[in-house]
């Protein structure tokens, strides 16, 4: 029945899986660089995270993070790595949608598009 289609799905997923690993490793390297800078800068000050301080005006959205990185802010560099990391599953869903489109599988293009829309909503407008 769907055996050949399954094998094809699998091949595409394997490529997507590799791309994801590259995404995660890139994110980890950026986080490591930002984290080292952060420790060099603030490593010796006392840590207190017992109380939630609410949102950091610089770090609350994707756009403001990018602007802060331009000024070499270590916290913002860590956040860029973390945004990259959060973006990897989003990229996976987008690529899976392309794969379904190539197979002319309309139902699953729609299903995948719904998931993608929900993810993008969370990432860009999720202030609820």
């Amino acid at each position: 029945m769907d055996a050949t289609r399954d094998r094809q799905d699998e091949r595409i997923e394997r490529i997507i899986g590799r791309l994801l690993q590259i995404g995660v490793l890139t994110a980890a390297v950026v986080v490591l660089i930002g984290g080292s800078m952060l420790l060099a800068q603030y490593g010796s000050i006392p840590a207190n995270f017992a109380r939630f301080k609410g949102e950091d005006p610089v770090l609350k959205s994707v756009g403001s993070i990018v602007r802060a990185v331009m000024t070499g802010d270590s916290r913002a560099i860590v956040q860029v790595g973390l945004v990259l990391l959060i973006a990897t599953p989003v990229a996976r869903v987008a690529l899976t949608m392309v794969a379904f489109a190539l197979q002319r599988d309309r139902v699953y293009v729609v299903v995948t598009a719904i998931v993608l829309a929900l993810l993008l909503y969370g990432l860009f407008w999720g202030r609820a």
Binding site: G54, E55, L59, K60, I86, L119, G122, G126, R127
Partner: peptide, 8 residues
């Protein structure tokens, strides 16, 4: 995580 990023 996207939502929590905005919320700090």
């Amino acid at each position: 995580a996207g939502v929590y990023l905005h919320r700090g």
